[in-house]
Design a protein around this nucleic acid. Structure first.
Length: 276
DNA sequence: CATATGTCCTGAGAGC
DNA sequence: TGCTCTCAGGACATAT
């Protein structure tokens, strides 16, 4: 699963490809479902071949590749997508391959589950999308006031609201649970019952955890899927305090065991002893 | 408008 | 052993 820290780690690993010129765009060997790559491969290739990669950015959980020729390629890795400079984990799930004229020689999109998407936009269209209210502000730059402004009037449980990318971009299931635990907030609390001081606590915990997770190069879970651009695993999974630790003692308070509940059809882990 | 649910996908693991 | 079933959760479409 890829959230802000994994995508940011991936972005940083892709930076050596900046300045490279695209020689060819290929999609071997799998058949991608039609929605995955927009527009279709031949149009995508025609638009990007001979263009240069200018910048590698991140918007929430998306990798944004800015090319010469006024084109922006947006990659959503979702559950199992990887953007790689190194060779992929296997060839069966390789979806898209950019060959460069120089070094590094390639940039790949690999996705085992096939839920990820790749979309090419003219710059103008992408800028319009960015300016729309479709995506909230980046979670790394948030604070208590901003969190309260974006989420505070909602009746939803705070854990569920944190996953809403239109409200705040970049937080997913894992880091929502970790941040709420660090802030000692019950994930079931309705947003509109959370006090200003608690929003501040949550924002500080969230930003600290995201930075910490980036420092450890993201979380590679038991399925081993997540890899950085050089196909190396992250290390933050060894520092999780609640995620996937049901039954284990709470590392904050020692009063309780971590429990697993389901909210909005997703697993939530928390400590009933210290998260109020 | 806000919120809730269904859908896509593959591989791992359970149960028989 | 090998089959069927369930589950994991990103973002979006559709329903309430």
């Amino acid at each position: 699963m890829l959230e802000l820290p994994e995508v940011e780690t991936m972005r940083r690993g892709l930076l050596p490809a900046c300045g490279q010129r695209v020689k060819r765009v290929l999609a071997p060997p799998c058949e991608c479902r039609p929605i995955l790559i927009r527009p279709h491969l031949d149009q995508l290739a025609a638009a990007l071949e001979r263009q240069s990669l200018l910048q590698v950015n991140r918007v929430g959980k998306r990798i944004v590749l800015e090319f010469s020729g006024q084109k922006t390629l947006v990659i959503e890795p979702r559950m199992t997508g990887l953007v790689l400079l190194a060779d992929p984990p296997d060839l069966d799930h390789l979806r898209l391959r950019f060959e460069f004229t120089g070094q590094p020689r390639q940039l790949l999109f690999w996705d085992r589950r096939g839920l990820g998407t790749v979309t090419l936009y003219p710059n103008e269209e992408w800028q319009a999308l960015l300016a729309s209210s479709k995506w909230g502000p980046d979670a790394l730059g948030t604070d208590g006031k901003l969190l309260q402004a974006r989420l505070g009037s909602s009746r939803r449980a705070v854990k569920v609201a944190l996953l809403d990318q239109a409200a705040l971009a970049g937080v997913g299931n894992l880091y929502a649970a970790e941040a709420l635990h660090a802030a000692k907030l019950d994930p079931r609390r309705p947003c509109n019952a959370i006090k200003p001081r608690e929003w501040s606590r949550l924002a500080e915990a969230l930003v600290a955890i995201l930075h910490e997770a980036i420092r450890y190069e993201g979380s590679t879970l038991n399925d081993g899927t997540y890899r950085n651009a050089l196909n190396q695993a992250g290390n933050y999974q060894n520092h999780h305090r609640v995620y996937d630790r049901a039954g284990a003692p709470c590392l904050n308070c020692n009063r309780g065991q971590i429990v697993r509940i389901v909210q909005a059809q997703r697993a939530t882990f928390y400590c009933p002893g210290c998260q109020k």
